[in-house]
């Protein structure tokens, strides 16, 4: 495990970032901080994919100067996955931000627990 960890330090960093983002999304009370956590989590996955797709000493998979040899280019599939993932996470972020705006306009707070308490009070009255 030891030597592999040093070689794959990029993946290790990605996993740590994933953990940070995940726990922020789960544990933060503030909705904006939650969304930031969500973005860190998703970006960490893209970092992981980019690290996995990169091969030392090769170039981006765009054919230039008519070089068609496979050995010249990095693996294009993870890059494609990252692009798809970015689209997905952008729409998720947009939806969560719009929900946050609506909640803030109604309850003038970003704290989800506080909003729940207010809702319970509304129910009783």
């Amino acid at each position: 495990m030891g030597p592999n960890l040093l070689v794959n330090y990029g993946e290790a960093v990605a996993m740590i970032l994933f953990g940070i983002g995940f726990s922020n999304l789960l544990l933060q009370k503030n909705l904006i901080k939650k969304i930031i956590g969500f973005n860190i989590m998703d970006t960490a996955i893209y970092l992981f994919l980019a690290e996995k797709g990169y091969i030392e000493g090769r170039i981006a998979p765009i054919v230039v100067d008519n070089i068609t040899s496979v050995d010249k280019y990095i693996n294009p599939v993870p890059s494609g996955l990252v692009l798809t993932g970015i689209v997905v996470s952008v729409s998720g972020t947009a939806l969560m931000l719009s929900l946050t705006i609506r909640l803030y306009r109604r309850y003038h707070t970003l704290d989800l627990d506080e909003i729940s308490t207010m809702l319970k009070r509304e129910d009783r009255s």
Binding site: G21, L25, L26, M41, D42, M96, L99, R106, L119
Partner: peptide, 19 residues
């Protein structure tokens, strides 16, 4: 208010799951 709060909570849990 209730449905928006529910949707927010749903979204948070769902994003954890899809992550």
């Amino acid at each position: 208010g209730r449905t928006i709060e529910a949707a927010t909570r749903y979204m948070i849990m769902a994003q954890l799951g899809s992550g």
